[in-house]
Design a protein around this nucleic acid. Structure first.
Length: 418
RNA sequence: AGAGAGGUGUCCGAGUGGUUUAAGGAGCACGCCUGGAACGCGUGUGUAGGGCAACCUACCGAGGGUUCGAAUCCCUUCCUCUCUGCCA
């Protein structure tokens, strides 16, 4: 959640920042007005309540002394009615304000470039040069057919469209990648976690998926539970409503989980192949830091994801997302895009974000700084999306006859094949 | 799923209608003690909001109710523990 006090005191600055993300300043006006109204309503209520409390004490004393309380009671009855009325007004305003505030996205960092869509993202650097093929490289779905690696029809039969079954070596590579990623991250200081893949609504609100993006989530019928869209949700919320000791920060975590997304609004996009599925595997990194540290940890996470791609011999590039392409909770995001020779373009394979204190404020993740409690910073990033890595390996390691080589670093993880 | 017990501050824990204005302890911070530390002693210390000082308000799992007054009584609901059932 954004900092309402900050908006109150630095309205123009806040409006400028959010304009970068495409937020209409009228929304902020609304928010500011509500905030002021709420303050006033609360003050009014508190005054009445204070009187009510102090007279109630007198009432007790009167009774003890055997004095007549009729007059006092009439006064108190009146105050009670007033207090109820005022508290209802304040409650209503508070709920309205909260609902509106929960739907305002995070402020972008100053380094975030202006822009409306992904076309305005800024390339930071390229890593590894795509290799020249002596033949026209195929797309991954053709290679999948040729090798019997992906069973699209039966995936649809089991569930519905955008579900697929990995078979033969594809299933083995998927598993090998998960293990390779987890080992790689662990060696770089990330602690391995194996969380639930269902999450309740409070946690999803903590990381920003709810209330705004309910349509993207699979919900369990009759329960306050959703399938997680990313391990960011359970890992970050492990510390929901907790106060951490400064000495235990930064907390660096990594987890493999399947992820579930309805992909509402992407009808027709990436319908071939397994680029965009309702269920996909991902190994995620999450960090909880003090504010002064989050920049450094952010760089580390980007570097870590890039190093994995390099270790796999996959050409990729780093892209700084522009304001318009930035996610709801992110203050800053760097995407890693892997080279797909079959598609002849770079495609997103990892997204590393610093949410600053946006999620921490929603999820009440704090740390004790000497005496005071302060909001922590939370960061997340993929290292990496497993299915898309499989695609990248297929397309980059393909031979003219359609066979596919296995990257060296993966071979120790695939002894049953080699 | 059934029966019983319970949810109080960073943690443990007392508290069955009015000096609870949440006891006490641990932890933490500061000071004394020390060559330095531990121990010991003293002081401070729940969270959030408003004035930003005194002070005021909300919060005892959540929501509702009773009452002049609720951590305390009633209802609903969630969670935890123990036993039973089921299960990888």
């Amino acid at each position: 959640m954004i900092d309402l006090k900050y908006i109150e005191k630095n309205f123009d600055e806040a409006a400028t920042k959010l304009a970068k993300k495409g937020v209409d300043s009228a929304l902020l006006d609304d928010l500011k007005e509500l905030f002021a109204k709420l303050k006033e309503a609360k003050a009014e209520f508190e005054n009445v309540r204070a009187e009510q409390k102090s007279l109630s004490k007198e009432f007790g004393a009167y009774k003890a002394q055997g004095k007549d309380v009729a007059e006092l009671k009439a006064k108190l009855d009146d105050l009670k009615e007033q207090a109820n009325k005022l508290s209802n007004i304040a409650d209503k305003l508070e709920k309205e304000l909260e609902q509106k505030a929960l739907n305002i996205p995070n402020f972008p960092d100053d380094v975030v470039p202006e822009g409306k869509s992904e076309d305005d993202n800024v390339e930071i650097k390229k890593v590894l040069t795509p290799k020249e093929f002596s033949f026209t490289p195929k797309e991954h779905w053709d290679l999948a057919d040729k090798n019997g690696w992906i069973d699209f029809e039966r995936g649809v039969k089991l569930a519905k469209s955008r579900f697929a079954i990995l078979r033969n070596d594809a299933a083995k590579i998927e598993r090998a990648l998960i293990n390779f990623f987890l080992d790689f991250n662990t060696k770089n200081g990330f602690n391995e976690v194996c969380p639930p893949v269902l999450s309740n609504s409070k946690m999803l609100q903590g990381t920003g998926q709810l209330p705004k993006f309910e349509d993207d989530l699979f919900k369990i019928d009759g329960e306050d539970l959703y399938l997680i869209p990313t391990a960011e949700v359970p890992l970050t919320n492990m510390f929901n409503d907790e106060i951490l000791a400064e000495s235990e920060l930064p907390l660096l975590m990594t987890a493999y989980t399947p992820c579930f997304r309805k992909e509402a609004g992407s009808a027709g996009r990436d319908t071939r192949g397994i680029i965009r599925q309702h269920q996909f595997d991902k190994v995620e990194m999450v960090a909880i830091t003090i504010p002064e540290q989050s920049e450094e940890v952010f760089e580390k996470m980007v570097q870590n994801a890039s190093d994995i791609l390099t270790a796999l011999g996959l050409p990729h590039r780093l892209v700084e997302l522009c304001g318009g392409d930035l996610g709801f909770s992110a203050a800053r995001t760097i995407d890693l895009e892997v080279w797909l020779p079959g598609q002849n373009k770079y495609r997103e394979i990892s997204s590393v974000s610093n949410t600053r204190d946006f999620q921490a404020r929603r999820a009440k993740i704090r740390y004790k700084d000497g005496k005071k409690n302060k909001l922590a910073n939370t960061l997340n990033g993929s290292a990496l999306a497993v299915g898309r890595t499989l695609i990248a390996i297929m397309e980059n390691y393909q031979n003219e006859d359609g066979s596919i080589d296995i990257p060296e670093v993966l071979k120790p993880y695939m002894e049953s094949r080699v």
